[in-house]
Computed example of a mutant assay.
Amino acid sequence: MSFQDKVVLVTGGASGIGGATTRAFAKAGAKVAFTYATSRDEADAIVQEFAAEGVKGLALQADVTRPEAVTEVFARVERDLGPVDILFANAGGLLKRSRCVDTSLELWQQAIAINLTSTFLCCQAALRSMEPRRSGAIVTMSSLAAFDGGGFGAAHYAATKGAVATFTRSLAKEVGPLGIRVNGVAPGLIGTRFHDTFNTPEGRAAAVEKTPLRREGTPQDVADAVLYLASDHASYLAGEIMQINGGVGF
């Protein structure tokens, strides 16, 4: 797959799945911008890699739950690299586990902001540029939790990831006639800092045992799927939520 001269924006693109995808797009010839919240060292490492390989890229520290920050990100990308052709709306996460009965309204709203609002704002900004050009591809980040309810104490996270999946399908119907494809990925157990933080070795081992392929996924597994969905090879896919989980639930 080649993305020569395509302008790609990856939100949350400095580490984990986002970092793997940022690097994968760059290796495929794209001009890549990525946002990060706090991972400055990881962002700097990617920028240095880009410089060494002659890749044109851009790292932007931004809170993509804020409309003004998203507007600034897209303006910077367009000024420095060109209008965004491909968006991977990856930013999000689980702040902490909390039983529903103990979940504060503040935590609930924070989960909505980092997972759903950030996706909405970035898709909206991308479409303002893509619609006049009648071309573009968007990939969103859902989760296995959207389909199985997630782990213990993650109802707030699962709810937002389910909403991302529904938003993705709805948006695909809305902008497909304009030549813009919208799809999503829904990873399962991927060996990243997320599971280092919110899972246990025992929990991960039990999940692997239930996985038909008998292993954890890697960030590259997800990155490969994102690149496929964003490429011309997936030109007849729209509204698809690709589950990347080693066969769980099938």
Rank of each mutant, 00 (worst) to 15 (best):
residue 2 S to A: 12
residue 3 F to W: 05
residue 4 Q to N: 14
residue 4 Q to F: 10
residue 6 K to N: 04
residue 13 G to A: 12
residue 15 S to M: 12
residue 15 S to A: 14
residue 17 I to T: 04
residue 20 A to T: 05
residue 20 A to E: 02
residue 27 K to S: 08
residue 27 K to E: 14
residue 28 A to Y: 07
residue 31 K to Q: 15
residue 34 F to M: 12
residue 42 E to M: 12
residue 42 E to S: 14
residue 45 A to T: 14
residue 48 Q to Y: 04
residue 50 F to A: 15
residue 51 A to H: 12
residue 52 A to P: 03
residue 52 A to G: 12
residue 56 K to P: 04
residue 58 L to V: 09
residue 58 L to E: 09
residue 60 L to Q: 10
residue 64 V to G: 11
residue 64 V to R: 09
residue 65 T to V: 11
residue 67 P to V: 12
residue 73 V to Q: 05
residue 73 V to H: 05
residue 74 F to N: 03
residue 78 E to C: 05
residue 78 E to P: 03
residue 78 E to I: 05
residue 80 D to E: 15
residue 80 D to K: 13
residue 84 V to K: 02
residue 86 I to A: 03
residue 87 L to D: 00
residue 87 L to Y: 04
residue 95 L to S: 10
residue 96 K to G: 01
residue 98 S to A: 07
residue 99 R to K: 11
residue 105 L to F: 11
residue 108 W to V: 06
residue 110 Q to F: 02
residue 110 Q to S: 10
residue 111 A to S: 15
residue 113 A to D: 15
residue 114 I to N: 05
residue 117 T to G: 06
residue 119 T to I: 09
residue 121 L to G: 14
residue 121 L to N: 11
residue 122 C to N: 14
residue 124 Q to R: 15
residue 125 A to Q: 14
residue 127 L to C: 13
residue 127 L to Q: 09
residue 128 R to I: 06
residue 128 R to S: 07
residue 129 S to C: 05
residue 129 S to M: 11
residue 131 E to M: 14
residue 131 E to L: 15
residue 132 P to L: 10
residue 133 R to F: 06
residue 136 G to E: 08
residue 138 I to V: 13
residue 138 I to Y: 05
residue 139 V to K: 07
residue 140 T to N: 15
residue 140 T to G: 07
residue 142 S to W: 10
residue 142 S to H: 11
residue 144 L to Q: 15
residue 146 A to D: 11
residue 146 A to S: 13
residue 149 G to R: 06
residue 150 G to D: 03
residue 152 F to P: 04
residue 152 F to I: 09
residue 152 F to L: 07
residue 153 G to C: 03
residue 153 G to S: 02
residue 154 A to C: 13
residue 155 A to Y: 04
residue 157 Y to F: 08
residue 159 A to I: 09
residue 161 K to V: 10
residue 162 G to F: 12
residue 163 A to D: 11
residue 164 V to N: 07
residue 165 A to L: 10
residue 169 R to K: 15
residue 171 L to Y: 12
residue 172 A to N: 04
residue 172 A to L: 00
residue 174 E to S: 13
residue 174 E to R: 13
residue 175 V to T: 11
residue 177 P to S: 06
residue 177 P to G: 05
residue 178 L to R: 14
residue 178 L to W: 05
residue 180 I to G: 03
residue 181 R to L: 01
residue 183 N to E: 04
residue 184 G to K: 12
residue 186 A to T: 13
residue 187 P to W: 02
residue 188 G to K: 04
residue 191 G to M: 11
residue 194 F to G: 06
residue 195 H to E: 12
residue 197 T to C: 05
residue 199 N to E: 14
residue 203 G to N: 02
residue 203 G to S: 02
residue 207 A to R: 14
residue 207 A to D: 04
residue 208 V to S: 01
residue 208 V to C: 01
residue 209 E to M: 01
residue 210 K to R: 15
residue 212 P to Y: 03
residue 213 L to C: 01
residue 214 R to C: 00
residue 215 R to E: 01
residue 217 G to S: 01
residue 219 P to N: 02
residue 219 P to R: 02
residue 221 D to I: 03
residue 221 D to K: 01
residue 223 A to R: 04
residue 225 A to N: 00
residue 229 L to R: 00
residue 230 A to M: 05
residue 230 A to F: 01
residue 230 A to W: 02
residue 232 D to Y: 04
residue 233 H to G: 08
residue 234 A to M: 02
residue 235 S to F: 07
residue 236 Y to A: 02
residue 237 L to Y: 06
residue 239 G to N: 00
residue 243 Q to P: 02
residue 243 Q to W: 08
residue 246 G to L: 03
